[in-house]
């Protein structure tokens, strides 16, 4: 697992003000999440693809991320066409595939991918610290922003501790199987991961405190929105409104 794999880059989107990106993402994904027409979802998908191209990310990693998300969407494709009531287009024995089910699954697939692309292009191109800072400057409650930042920070800690222990086990020739020894080992591994993460979290907190942390994350990238940012914000909000108009027009 890699964290913040898209946050380092030099594209136009990487340099955009975090707050602008947050607001744009909010409006675009809100409209897309609520829309019910194929046309709107398709338009959203186009916007997503345009943005991801503009972000100039490594396409292989983007595809990998999409693949992970679409694995979940895959379950919908298994269940929806079979279970959704509607006109049958195809039937084998007791199983029948409904056209409405297929249509719904298509819609959900498009919506999901559009939103993921937009979030990847706009939010993943900022570091988590910058996002937390941006949220705070947008007036979100400080405690929630800190919660976000620390969750991120400590998921990473826990992951690292786990990897360390798992590596130690592997180096001592541990090969998982279906036996009690495996289950016990995994039990120890998870238990120790929690205990060690807890201790490390405590030391990290101490280290932060000693370096003057007073409950407020500051960032090096403390920009004020420039003309480009405002232009982008205008375009994104206009885009969201167009999607909305499209949705209301086709409904």
């Amino acid at each position: 697992m890699r964290f913040e794999q898209f946050s380092q880059g030099s594209s136009f989107l990487h340099r955009l003000d975090t707050r602008v990106k947050l607001i744009s993402t909010f409006f675009l994904s809100l409209v897309l999440a609520l829309c019910q027409s194929d046309l709107t979802a398709l338009a959203g998908l186009v916007i997503g693809i345009l943005l991801i191209t503009a972000a100039r990310l490594e396409m292989r990693q983007v595809c990998y991320r999409l693949l992970m998300v679409n694995a979940f969407v895959g379950f919908l494709w298994i269940t929806l066409p079979l279970s959704y009531p509607g006109d049958r287009v195809f039937a084998v024995g007791v199983l029948s595939i409904s056209s409405q089910g297929v249509a719904l699954a298509t819609l959900i697939t498009m919506k999901t991918n559009a939103i993921i692309l937009i979030i990847t292009a706009l939010l993943a191109t900022s570091g988590t610290a910058d996002l937390g800072h941006g949220l705070e400057r947008l007036g979100m409650p400080r405690k929630l922003c800190l919660l976000l930042l620390f969750s991120y920070r400590y998921i990473f800690v826990i992951h690292q501790e786990y990897q360390r222990l798992a590596r130690a086990a592997r180096l001592r020739c541990f090969r998982p199987g279906t036996n009690l020894h495996t289950y016990r080992t995994y039990g120890y591994l998870f238990g120790m991961t929690l205990v060690k993460s807890c201790h490390r979290a405590d030391r990290v907190r101490q280290a932060m405190m000693l370096r003057g942390f007073k409950g407020r994350f500051l960032t090096l990238n403390d920009s004020i929105p420039v003309r480009n940012d405002l232009l982008f914000l205008g375009a994104a909000v206009a885009g969201a409104f167009c999607l909305l108009a499209l949705e209301l027009g086709t409904r």
Binding site: E4, S7, G127, A129, R153, R203, V204, Q206, M208, L220
Partner: peptide, 10 residues
């Protein structure tokens, strides 16, 4: 224990 920001500079 001491390093927690994503990049060294930060």
């Amino acid at each position: 224990d001491q390093l927690f920001s994503p990049t060294v500079l930060e």
